[in-house]
Amino acid sequence: MDDASKTAYWKANLRLIIGCLVVWFTCSFGLGILLADQLNAIKIGGYKLGFWFAQQGSIYVFLFLIFFYAACMNALDRKFNVHEG
């Protein structure tokens, strides 16, 4: 692997990480804490939405994010031909 593609691979990884962490922050700190009061005006079943994000939703989002990241990285590894056997 030459230096140029190494740099390109790393940049693509960083872009992906930043994207994922923006969602990570928005769902937990944003929807679960900062905007919880406003969101609590909306109800899904018996759950106030802000409360739901803080105690349930953010965990589901974290789960989705890790598997999404892992899948994207597998594709990236293949694209740059650095995947393991």
């Binding site: 990480i17 962490l21 937990s28 409360f51 803080a54 105690q55």
Partner: peptide, 24 residues
């Protein structure tokens, strides 16, 4: 009640950081 959400989010959200920033 709601204030304990910090533990729920805090002790799970760290796994995103592990998966993306450290473990691999």
């Amino acid at each position: 009640g709601y204030d304990a959400s910090v533990y729920l989010m805090g002790w799970t959200g760290g796994y995103c950081l592990l998966a993306m920033l450290l473990a691999p």
